[in-house]
Amino acid sequence: MNVALDALLASSALWRAHGGTEAADPAGRACLPTGWPKLDAKLPGGGWPLGTLIEFLLPGTGIGELSLLLPALARLAAAAPAAGHCWLVWIAPPHAPYPPAFAQHGIHAERLLFVTAGRTPDRLWAIEQALRSGSCAAVFGWLDAADDRWLRRLKLAAATGQALAVLFRPLRRRAAASPASLRLVLEPTPAGLDLWLLKSRGRGPIRVHDAFGP
């Protein structure tokens, strides 16, 4: 093989629109398999990118957004004890996540941390603190309108750690600019859940039909 080409491909300065299938996306970030084969195949790193922002755009609560994250969350929870304590942080969720259901999937109730914050500035601040603290394996935040500069700040904060950082925003924010590395629209259908990958490293919108299906 061409050594020079290999060195070039290995360089993190090179941006590749269609990355390989190893557990790192083209920007060199670690990725966590989503647990849904159809989705993994379409994502650049073969999974959720860690240490950056992921944005879910939802038409409503309870359409399968947590089920989508559940396998990854279970994987994080299983890996956590070796690395000391890490929180799975929920900032301003619309309802109460139900701990026994998480325990059924192997996620310890002791790891869940709920933060209630009514005002948007407080929510943004809490998300940033959680991302920067380095003690969180996953940070989930619910936001509506948010300043683009604040979102950039959150992305920088996410880059300081290795957390799975997901922002949940209403579908009407689809047109708003966002620095998130991965943006998904969730679309419930009678059969299951369809996904639109709006923004994922240089590719146009991709549709994942029936993400939970075989």
Binding site: T61, G62, L66, S67, L70, P94, H95, A96, P97, Y98, P100, A101, F102, A103, Q104
Partner: peptide, 10 residues
């Protein structure tokens, strides 16, 4: 833990 499925949101 309950054997029957439990919802993620309550």
């Amino acid at each position: 833990l309950p054997l029957a499925p439990r919802p993620l949101w309550l």
